[in-house]
Design a protein around this nucleic acid. Structure first.
Length: 565
RNA sequence: CGGGGUGUGGCGCAGCCCGGUAGCGCACCUGCUUUGGGAGCAGGGGGUCGGAGGUUCAAAUCCUCUCACCCCGACCA
């Protein structure tokens, strides 16, 4: 590519509406432009990065027997009605054709896969199968954000496995796990494989691939001792217990104290000696009083999982109606609703709301002073002990770059995707589904590797390998040498950008740093005076001066030390 | 969906409180000089001030409605 003729619109300043580092840099480096909320164009260099990522994905998917196909973006409503997902997904874009027939834009493709399988898979001899595509998904996200990290239209590699039984599904799942690790390793990312919530959609198990980054939307808990890693949606930890005083049960006046902080300050006690009582309304069960330790936060998904239904916080008037006291003074003793407590409240004595405005009860022991069910409900915080080995947990923000999911037979049963087993019996196909977000890989790489001057691409997914700066394009000797190096790169399999613009050197150097292409070759004065050019690593910033005919060797040498493949 | 914020030339912003007919930096065009870390001088082009309505002699500025985008939360199959 010649810079003078390429669409690489770099920006000198941070765009006003970008917050995340990767968002700013992708805009500034001219990789993307925004058309609307969560709708992006990929410009030439951004496209090249996606191409690199997708090539790696294809290689590794093909290596485990994946077969690439392309499924439609427009789906007839019928298959979604059959699976039961036509209603109740607010993210689904729905539309009608000119005859008024209902259609939707594909946000995922389990239905289409099951439809295909229902028609083409008949015998156990046809199994297993791995089908995948790299294709556009459409989701009407409630809140698109952070540039390319959560968008309404995005590229996804989605694959689907078809197996005769759960044991075979486990093998397909394992193959994906290994392929994903190779993919993310090759893309130069630091990541964790974490246990994740299978959600309301059910399923037999799932894992997420999480790349730690400040812009990440998810939080993961990690044990550096034993390798335990889980999304905080399900992560368990053992909080350090406080020293319990020898309290006897009594009512204490706490005028005006509503929050845990106020109550513990008033009573001059450790907040860990209090219990936070929260009234929730279950979709089917009605009111439930939920208890967590005063210093803990309830994780609503954990609550929903424990109850097996969706929940919402009660309104203030509902709190008064069910408990006879305002929020801030409520507690489990004498409450006429179901009580669910965090499992770490089993032992000890606490201060709880008295269900009487301005009063709390001191010395209350869960199980003794009130009945309740125990479950893991609190959000893990950094420093809690690992449930497996006892070492302190670390909590990090992370970008979900991939997920693998054991679906089971939900879709095959719904869409009648059956096969005949060895004994001639009809059985539902056992499915799995697996996703990777190529743009998220690019953003995660930027987040993890960028420095103060811009992007630092790993070799494997860099849009180009070499950035050639011709310091003064009006100097014929420089110009000729730069062109010769540019040609040499091409003949030696190196992808190069020749910055042939008539700009000040500083402009070109700043741009080279911003773009993050692994090697910069500078053709300038030292060529004229000493016959050498400079070859510089973007990552290490180390520079060597080499004769013009040794440039390719020097580039390969840097690549050999910095690249994993 | 709840809360907060922002819309002024391609980009980043000032002007708005206190109404008087739009300005700065960068970018862009022309010329000259300059060429190793975002050059200098001179000249020049480009803006329905997000949109609609209203108040007023007069609206970027005040009022009402509306649209778009960003951030926090909820949601995220």
């Amino acid at each position: 590519m010649r810079r003078s003729q390429s669409l690489v619109p770099t920006l000198r300043e941070d765009p006003a509406d970008a917050e995340a580092l990767s968002h700013k840099l992708m805009l500034r480096a001219g990789l993307i432009r925004q058309l609307g909320a969560g709708i992006y164009l990929f410009l030439p260099l951004g496209q090249r990065v996606l191409d690199k990522v997708n090539a790696i994905i294809r290689e590794e998917m093909n290596a485990i027997g994946g077969q690439e196909i392309t499924m439609p973006v427009i789906h007839p409503a019928e298959i979604w009605k059959q699976s039961g997902r036509w209603e109740g997904i607010p993210e689904m874009f729905k539309l009608q054709d000119r005859y008024g027939r209902d259609l939707c834009l594909g946000m995922t493709h389990e239905e289409v896969v099951a439809w295909l399988a229902a028609r083409e898979i008949r015998s156990y001899r046809d199994l297993p199968q791995i089908w995948y595509q790299i294709q556009t998904k459409e989701r009407d996200e409630a809140r698109p954000r952070s540039g390319v990290l959560r968008t309404r239209e995005f590229l996804m590699k989605d694959s689907y496995t078809l197996d005769p039984d759960v044991a075979a599904l486990d093998r397909s799942y394992g193959a994906h796990d290994r392929a994903y690790r190779r993919i993310f390793d090759r893309c130069g990312l630091r990541y964790w494989v974490v246990q994740s919530d299978t959600g309301m959609m059910g399923g037999l198990g799932s894992h997420e691939f999480m790349a730690p980054a400040a812009a990440g939307e998810d939080e993961i808990a990690i044990c550096e001792g034993c390798g335990y890693a889980a999304n905080v949606e399900i992560a368990r930890g053992v909080p350090a217990p406080p020293a319990f005083p020898a309290w006897t049960r009594e009512e204490v006046a706490t005028p005006g104290a509503r929050t845990i902080a106020e109550v513990s300050r008033l009573l001059a006690i450790d907040p860990r000696l209090t219990i936070k009582s929260l009234l929730y309304i279950g979709k089917t069960s009605g009111p439930v009083l939920v208890l967590v330790r005063g210093d803990h936060a309830l994780h609503e998904r954990k609550l929903a999982r424990a109850l097996g239904q969706e929940v919402r916080p009660a309104h203030p008037d509902e709190v008064r109606q069910h408990l006879g006291a305002p929020a801030g003074s409520v507690g489990p003793v004498g409450a006429r609703v179901t009580v669910l407590a965090d499992e770490h409240l089993k032992d000890g004595v606490y201060v709880v709301g008295a269900n009487r405005d301005g009063f709390h009860l001191r010395g209350v022991a869960p199980g003794r002073d009130f009945d309740c069910r125990f479950a893991d409900l609190h959000t893990v915080t950094a420093g809690e002990a690992c449930v497996q080995c006892g070492k302190p947990l670390v909590v990090e923000k992370a970008i979900e770059i991939g997920n693998i999911f054991k679906l089971g037979t939900k879709y095959s049963v719904a869409l009648d995707a059956m096969y005949l087993d060895e004994s001639g019996r009809e059985q539902p196909i056992v499915m799995g589904s697996y996703g990777i977000g190529p743009a998220r890989i690019a953003a995660a790489a930027i987040e993890q590797l960028a420095d103060g001057d811009g992007i630092v691409w790993p070799w494997s997914i860099a849009p180009l390998h070499v950035y050639i700066v011709c310091v003064n394009v009006k100097d014929q000797a420089q110009r000729a040498a730069a062109e010769a190096i540019y040609d040499a790169c091409r003949t030696h399999g190196l992808e190069a950008m020749l910055d042939d613009r008539d700009e000040r050197p500083g402009v070109k150097f700043k741009d080279a740093d911003l773009l993050g292409i692994p090697v910069r070759v500078t053709v300038g004065n030292s060529l004229v005076k000493e016959g050498v050019v400079e070859v510089r690593s973007r990552k290490t910033r180390q520079e060597s001066r080499v004769p013009q005919d040794k440039v390719i060797d020097a580039v390969h040498a840097i690549r050999a030390t910095e690249s994993r493949n």
